[in-house]
Design a protein around this nucleic acid. Structure first.
Lengths: 136, 136
DNA sequence: CCGTATCCATTCCGATACTG
DNA sequence: CAGTATCGGAATGGATACGG
């Protein structure tokens, strides 16, 4: 039940969006708040929860501010494939053909997206018995 | 906001688990019920919702029974990478080292899992600007 | 700026009972 | 077997006010 456990941790509406933002370089409380437009109290609770689960960690502010920042841990970084897969599925199926697509995955890079195709390295078709791991 | 839209559709606790089961070959109402252990009413509402969103579709029962089956559409099949990524993350981080891992992705294949490593085909590191697509 | 505390409306979920 | 109807409790989310 690995999937169910994963959903227990990041399966609520906001958590994965927070992780996505963190993966995009967002670090500060008010940046998350502005980006996601959610209430302070639930942002606070979700951040706390993500820290407790070792997905985010608090680090001293890089700008010398008195407050800490929330940075993804290794465990959090490894959620990358999940976010990618979800974003790609959403892009493929949830937009009208004419609709412009804004891509939050690129916010702090200001570069065009690169698409990398992936195929089984032995030529076999991928099926339910395959686990695909994306190595950085 | 492709990610947010995707989560709007499959972001609640049960929907993605239902999709996972459907991807595993589960088709009948009571099979979902047994597999997931959820109340009939919410299973009913989730199935209806997934059908409305074109992720599942009802088809006549293959065994000639009077009831219909729920089968994934193309759109639903394309959620495969999401489920895979989630299952893999959960397997990597959410189990104790000694804990046996049951893998529902393999239920109707009875074969060992194959792990396929994937790398960017031009040698670059993968980052937030990359979209990875998994081709079958 | 970064949270916490409180309140309220809404939703969600599980159990149960009922129908064809 | 495959749902629908209803109900009550619990959790969620938003708004707001407040304190470090």
């Amino acid at each position: 039940m690995a999937t169910a456990r994963a959903l227990d941790v990041i399966g609520d509406w906001w958590s994965l969006l927070i992780v996505r933002d963190a993966l995009n370089g967002i670090r500060r409380f008010n940046e998350f708040e502005r980006s996601l437009g959610l209430a302070k109290n639930i942002l606070s609770s979700r951040l706390k929860r993500l820290v407790e689960h070792g997905i985010l960690e608090t680090v001293p502010a890089s700008d010398g501010s008195a407050y800490s920042e929330y940075a993804p841990t290794e465990k959090g970084l490894k959620l990358f494939p999940v976010v990618i897969a979800l974003a790609q599925w959403g892009t493929e199926f949830l937009f009208e053909p004419s609709e412009p697509i804004s891509c939050p995955l690129d916010v702090d890079h200001h570069q065009p997206l690169r698409r990398i195709k992936v195929q089984a390295n032995d030529g076999r078709e991928l099926g339910p018995a395959d686990i695909v791991s994306i190595t950085r």
